[in-house]
């Protein structure tokens, strides 16, 4: 790469970008607009959350003196802490489910057909709902899980149950199903990339050396797919821990209260920007901590970063 750019001015006679920092060039002009967007919108936005969390709202205006009272309020509120805890458990459950399903799905597709074309069609067809948007998907699950929904009606008609199962919709169950459904492809594609990169001879070698199917699976296939599982885990966790649409539409009185809905209510209904920001920062801290632990596990046990 560096060789190419070093050769370019000589071969093309192009104007050389100013040299800076140990002979490296400035970023090419064509990415400056995007860098500007990152530097002047994305970074200040992240910093704004932090700033606001140390200010105070007195209903009409923002008091700009530094205070940690928002954090004290949030951390001494048992309702908020319970909800934060439940949200974390819920997000972990969603991540575990999505990763497990995605992993076995990728393996199953490879065992179902040997045609690359058919495999690609299957994988892409599972990615299509991602493009439909959360609302359409949530609407679909209302229709599947409701009292008059497809699952209850089929079970009633076949006589398996005599009255509709109530906990299918407006419960943690329905939110869990919908969030896993939304995040499945974020787990599937990284796992697919890792899985296709596995040298199949390693699995053959493991079998030749006497490992049974399960041993090969646990000691060869899973560790070699770990980079994909790691990336997929991060992406799914980040989305599911901050989901607000699915809990709102599919959650009952209980599952509606997740950390994300508390933050958005503080921002959009109470207009308590500092309070909402402090809660958002606490959520970010937990997300970063969870990702750090997950990275530590993936590195210690599977050496994901030092391959």
């Amino acid at each position: 790469m560096s060789q190419t750019s070093a050769n370019m001015p000589a071969s093309g006679g192009r104007a050389t970008a100013p040299l800076l920092f140990r002979g490296k060039q400035l970023p090419p002009l064509l990415i400056w607009p995007y860098i500007a967007l990152l530097v002047f919108v994305l970074f200040p936005s992240i910093i704004s959350i932090l700033l606001f969390s140390f200010w105070r709202s007195d209903f009409v205006s923002i008091d700009h003196t530094f205070t940690i009272v928002n954090y004290v309020d949030a951390l001494s509120d048992p309702v908020y802490l319970t909800i934060l805890f439940r949200t974390m458990i819920f997000a972990l459950a969603c991540t575990a489910t999505a990763l497990t399903l995605a992993f076995f799905f990728v393996v199953a597709v490879f065992r179902t057909t040997n045609s690359d074309k058919l495999r690609n069609i299957i994988f892409l067809s599972l990615a299509v709902p991602f493009l439909l948007g959360g609302l359409v998907r949530a609407l679909g699950w209302v229709g599947m899980l409701g009292n008059g929904g497809l699952i209850n009606i089929v079970l009633l008609e076949t006589g398996i149950i005599s009255e509709p199962i109530q906990w299918l919709l407006y419960s943690w169950f329905s939110v869990w199903i919908a969030v896993v459904y939304n995040t499945f492809q974020m787990a599937m594609f990284p796992i697919l990339l890792s899985y296709t990169a596995i040298d199949e001879r390693l699995q053959d070698a493991s079998r030749d050396l006497g490992a049974n199917g399960l041993g090969t699976f646990l000691r060869v296939t899973v560790p070699l797919t770990m980079p994909g599982i790691y990336v997929g885990g991060v992406l799914v966790f980040v989305v599911s821990v901050a989901s607000i649409v699915e809990p709102r539409i599919l959650g009952g009185s209980d599952a509606r209260s997740v950390a994300g809905s508390l933050i958005s209510d503080a921002m959009l209904q109470a207009f308590n920007y500092p309070g909402g920001s402090a809660k958002a920062i606490l959520l970010i801290v937990l997300i970063v901590a969870a990702i750090a632990l997950w990275s530590l596990f993936a590195e210690r046990k599977y050496r994901v970063f030092s391959r």
């Binding site: 994305l42 606001f52 992406l235 958002a280």
Partner: peptide, 20 residues
């Protein structure tokens, strides 16, 4: 930096931009 929006929940990106 280009990957940050992918790792950042939309909820937090949304309130961040709103606050800024």
């Amino acid at each position: 930096s280009a990957a940050i929006p992918l790792l950042m929940p939309l909820l937090l990106l949304g309130i961040g931009i709103q606050l800024f």
